[in-house]
Amino acid sequence: MKITQVRLGKLSVPLRVPFKTALRTVDRVEDIVVELHTDTGAVGYGEAPPTGPITGDTAGGIIGAVRELIAPAILGREVDDLESVTALVQSAGVHNTSAKAAVDMALWDLYGQLHRIPVHKLLGSSRRTLVTDITISVNPPQQMAQDALDAVARGYDCLKVKVGADPALDTARLAAVRQAVGDEVCIRIDANQAWTPRQAVRILNEMQDRGLGLELVEQPVPARDLEGLQYVTQHSWVPVMADESVFSPADALRIFQTRAADYVNIKLMKCGGLTNALRIAAAAEICGVECMIGCMLEAKIAVNAAVELACARSIITRVDLDGPVLCSTDPVVGGARFDEKRITVSDAPGMGIQGIQPGYLTYLEP
């Protein structure tokens, strides 16, 4: 099975409600889809969201990286030589992790199709179902409380609450959410790099003093401030998860060795796809550090790849794969089934993606 064509398209799907964080506000998914065509007729699918505030990747940058750097390196290559071909993807220029992730997952998809086995089984899956949290966007306290109640009514028992846009309001936001949903619902928060180290410790300890019962906080300080992250981990009463601080296996190992965080969030778009995500998970297993599997604002193709990984690695103990359920509809045919909080992986060969419904994908011809 040889790669004969790399085709790109733009996927556009409205969200149920605007997605708001300390870094950005978005009202629809606008992702780049990668199709790898082969001489057997098989097609491998990948997807990359342009998440400039986090990865630095714009839509134009993703398109350019795939067309100018990655596609020339892999065209004509044998899919069965997966290790070599994925290495070519990772070495095709510096950075561009989202473009690399999209092509990398499409290669794994083809490899599974070639050998007629689901990717999660290739990776040694131990489970077929996952339970995800759902994100509550930054808004006024009472709106966040209502959004949390709506999520619980839909069956969610773990909420990922965005904070950080206005630190003075953050405790009030969390208090309103906790009062609305009661003590039995898990609440984890994500500050998206919004606080200084001392500010983070003060806010987090104040939240716990008020009995808000937070499970963890994601990335409370700027990504490059590892000393600050370590300070928060040492002084906060809330466990700390590194997210934007971890783009590569080397980043993860540095976090593990310095104990700069209690947990690590693995995202395919940060690390360049399944190949490097597997390396992060392996390092986490050796160091005994639990991981979350997360996503950007992605539709089902990319999130589906993360599901394949999470089903195969027990060190991934927390799941934040709500991208598809934040969309107003799911135009992707095949792949994992997302039934609100419950995700069931597909047993079809590869990743099980069959295509995209008409009207949602616009092909980008050279």
Score class of each variant (00 low, 15 high):
252 A>M: 10
252 A>T: 04
253 L>D: 15
253 L>Q: 14
253 L>Y: 12
254 R>T: 14
254 R>I: 02
254 R>S: 14
256 F>S: 05
256 F>C: 00
257 Q>S: 12
257 Q>I: 04
257 Q>L: 15
257 Q>N: 14
258 T>V: 02
258 T>H: 13
258 T>Q: 13
259 R>T: 08
259 R>M: 06
259 R>N: 14
259 R>I: 03
260 A>Y: 07
261 A>S: 14
261 A>H: 12
261 A>Y: 15
261 A>N: 14
262 D>S: 13
262 D>T: 14
263 Y>R: 15
264 V>D: 06
265 N>S: 15
265 N>Q: 11
266 I>T: 11
269 M>W: 04
269 M>Y: 02
269 M>K: 05
270 K>E: 02
270 K>N: 04
270 K>T: 01
270 K>L: 10
271 C>L: 13
271 C>M: 08
272 G>A: 02
272 G>S: 07
274 L>N: 00
275 T>N: 12
276 N>Y: 07
276 N>H: 15
278 L>N: 10
278 L>Y: 03
278 L>V: 12
278 L>A: 15
280 I>E: 03
280 I>G: 12
280 I>C: 05
281 A>K: 05
282 A>Y: 06
282 A>K: 12
283 A>M: 10
284 A>V: 11
284 A>G: 12
285 E>L: 02
285 E>S: 15
286 I>C: 00
286 I>D: 03
286 I>W: 04
286 I>F: 07
287 C>D: 06
287 C>M: 13
287 C>L: 03
289 V>R: 11
289 V>C: 05
290 E>Q: 12
290 E>G: 05
291 C>Y: 09
292 M>C: 08
292 M>Q: 11
292 M>R: 10
293 I>C: 10
293 I>Q: 11
294 G>N: 04
294 G>A: 08
295 C>T: 10
295 C>L: 00
295 C>M: 06
296 M>A: 05
296 M>C: 06
296 M>L: 09
297 L>W: 08
297 L>G: 01
297 L>A: 07
298 E>F: 08
299 A>L: 09
299 A>Y: 14
300 K>E: 15
301 I>H: 12
301 I>V: 10
302 A>M: 11
302 A>L: 12
303 V>L: 09
304 N>L: 04
304 N>V: 04
304 N>H: 07
304 N>P: 11
305 A>I: 05
305 A>D: 05
305 A>Q: 00
305 A>E: 02
306 A>T: 06
307 V>I: 07
308 E>L: 08
308 E>V: 07
309 L>F: 00
309 L>W: 02
310 A>E: 09
310 A>Q: 09
312 A>G: 03
312 A>Y: 01
313 R>W: 01
313 R>K: 09
313 R>T: 00
313 R>C: 07
314 S>G: 01
314 S>R: 13
314 S>M: 06
314 S>E: 13
315 I>T: 02
315 I>E: 11
315 I>G: 04
315 I>F: 02
316 I>C: 02
316 I>H: 00
317 T>E: 01
318 R>V: 00
318 R>H: 11
318 R>Q: 13
319 V>Y: 02
320 D>R: 06
321 L>D: 06
321 L>W: 03
322 D>H: 01
322 D>N: 08
